[in-house]
């Protein structure tokens, strides 16, 4: 299946966020792809909004199944969460479980005024009542495929599709 150009999709997403009539928010990217996107958004807004990052590994619901294998990055939230309007940024929105973990982690920093979600790709397949307020593109991806955002040496973003069985 032919995947859209991630760079063009990002431009769509950025436009959508920038044109939205919305309260000021802080950006929080979810490792790893969401952090790249949040950094880009931060840059496009000339650094006007505070930027944080989350690695939700310690809040995942599949710890009992998969354990702690991959390198866990340190979460960095350099602003006051209490009372903040937060925009979570992730690359691929699928089951919604990562977002659930991210919301739980954010609440351990404080009580935000609101949390909204921006996703580069919404591939469907939700298992929790979670929706993105800003979406770059919607793609119907079969359940046995993994969709991943990758970044090459020059910093260019690419969407990659592979079989779930070959993952890890």
């Amino acid at each position: 299946m032919k995947l859209p150009d991630a760079e063009l999709v990002f431009q769509n997403l950025a436009k959508e966020i920038l044109s939205a009539d919305n309260k000021l928010f802080a950006l929080v990217g979810i490792h790893t792809g969401g952090v790249w996107l949040a950094e880009r958004l931060h840059h496009e807004m000339a650094g006007a909004l505070p930027l944080g990052t989350l690695d939700v590994s310690f809040y995942r619901d599949d710890f009992d199944k998969i354990g702690l294998h991959a390198q866990v990055e340190r979460s960095k939230i350099p602003f006051e969460v209490e009372g903040a309007h937060i925009l979570l940024v992730d690359d691929v929105l699928h089951t919604g479980r990562t977002i659930r973990a991210a919301i739980n982690e954010l609440f351990d920093y404080g009580r935000p005024a609101s949390i909204s979600l921006a996703a580069l790709v919404d591939r469907g397949g939700r298992e929790l009542p979670i929706a993105a307020q800003y979406t770059g593109v919607e793609l119907a991806i079969p359940a046995d495929k993994m969709l991943e955002l990758q970044r090459d040496k020059s910093g260019r973003l690419n969407l990659v599709l592979y079989d779930k069985s070959s993952a890890e």
């Binding site: 690695d55 979460s75 739980n104 404080g110």
Partner: peptide, 23 residues
């Protein structure tokens, strides 16, 4: 090294107001 790297992220947790995670 995996233990040391993982500990590095836990230092972040221990510096928060809520020093607890549900793992």
């Amino acid at each position: 090294l995996h233990i040391l790297d993982t500990a590095e992220s836990f230092v972040g947790v221990t510096e928060r107001d809520v020093k607890k995670i549900p793992l």
